[in-house]
């Protein structure tokens, strides 16, 4: 209702019109997400998982009671009781699901409904369609992750009663942001599948398979490969140990899940001073203190750049493929 003057009432000449495809589509996508059962389900799942892990963490915090860390609020995200995984590991498992659920039928549903035809015959740039879809998805993911993260922190704060320090808030913010980027990578990946696959079911299966492989099985496969290359049995095992671990780490880091986990735990744990191999020699003379936030950030800077690059790369692939694809069914 911004421009409801008399001039607007007259038919607008085509040349004067500014088409606002992106804004329209973005709004529509957002509304779609918020109304969809899928979004509600994923949000519910994340919230329940968050609350369950918080419950476990509170138990663990009261057990450990003041002995371990001076960052109690941070500990709420990383500590786990015996039965329930920590918030961070829950999110590492489940956040990709949010990305998958929001993206796996982004393009192929439009195609199946016949609405893609209608969209591309409007005077909008074709990339507005996929940009709007991706950005709306990222927005929803951002809201979801921050909602769950802040909810867990706030409830924990109520129970624990120790106010967080600025450093903790920064770390939590950075951690949640990292999770958003990680989840966006999965969104991009699932959108890529939705561009490639004609059927939503196929693309859902592919991304779910990829998700399960990367989060559960990749590390097993990697350790098998590492053990084949550098056997740890017998006397040679001592010589191979270093190479074995090195290879394992390198291969593991090919998986975004591992990258994310390393980065997340470094962000949430000021205790973690190195990622990867540490020798006795490099530890000698180190002061037993916490890392500051910027030092932690510096430590995982390569991880962060990789994560952003992966998220962008997955989106760019789907962007390029979508732009080059024939529109006709």
């Amino acid at each position: 209702m911004r421009r409801t003057n008399a001039a607007q009432a007259a038919p607008v000449a085509p040349a004067e019109r500014r088409s606002c495809g992106f804004a329209t589509l973005y709004r529509k996508e957002l509304a779609d997400h918020f109304h969809s059962a899928r979004f509600k389900l994923v949000l519910l799942l994340l919230t329940l998982a968050g609350l369950a892990s918080l419950f476990g963490a509170l138990e663990a915090v009261s057990d450990a009671n003041a002995s371990s860390s001076e960052y109690v609020i941070l500990a709420l995200y990383t500590l786990s009781s015996n039965s329930i995984p920590s918030f961070a590991s829950f999110l590492a498992y489940l956040a990709p699901l949010a990305g998958l659920a929001l993206g796996f039928d982004a393009i192929n549903r439009e195609r199946a409904q016949g609405t893609l035809n209608r969209l591309v015959s409007q005077p909008i740039y074709r990339d507005a369609i996929i940009n709007a879809k991706f950005l709306a998805g990222v927005t929803v993911i951002f809201l979801m992750i921050f909602f769950v993260g802040i909810l867990a922190g706030a409830l924990g704060l109520l129970v624990v009663g120790i106010p967080p320090e600025a450093e903790e808030l920064l770390r939590i913010g950075a951690y949640l942001l990292l999770t958003v980027v990680y989840t966006s990578m999965w969104l991009g990946l699932s959108m890529l599948c939705s561009v490639l696959c004609r059927h939503a079911a196929t693309s859902a299966l592919i991304v779910i398979a990829l998700w399960i492989y990367l989060t559960l099985f990749a590390s097993m496969v990697v350790s098998v490969i590492a053990n084949l290359a550098y056997p740890l049995d017998g006397i040679m095992g001592f010589y191979n140990a270093m190479d074995n671990y090195q290879l394992q780490l390198t291969l593991e880091r090919a998986s975004p899940y591992y990258l994310y986990c390393e980065a997340a735990s470094t962000l949430l744990n000021p205790n973690i001073r190195t990622v990867g191999i540490t020798t006795q020699a490099s530890m000698s003379g180190a002061l037993a203190s916490y890392l500051t936030f910027d030092q932690s950030l510096l430590l995982i800077w390569p991880h962060l750049t990789c994560m952003v690059a992966l998220a962008l790369f997955s989106f760019i692939c789907s962007y390029v493929l979508f732009m080059r694809q024939e529109i006709r069914a």
């Binding site: 019109r17 329209t24 589509l25 016949g114 609405t115 069914a329």
Partner: peptide, 22 residues
Amino acid sequence: NMGFYPEMTGRENLRMTGRMNG
């Protein structure tokens, strides 16, 4: 094989097209 967003009403579908046309 043109289609509409099934979860939106006819009016909403038209409104969206109108918006895309400025």
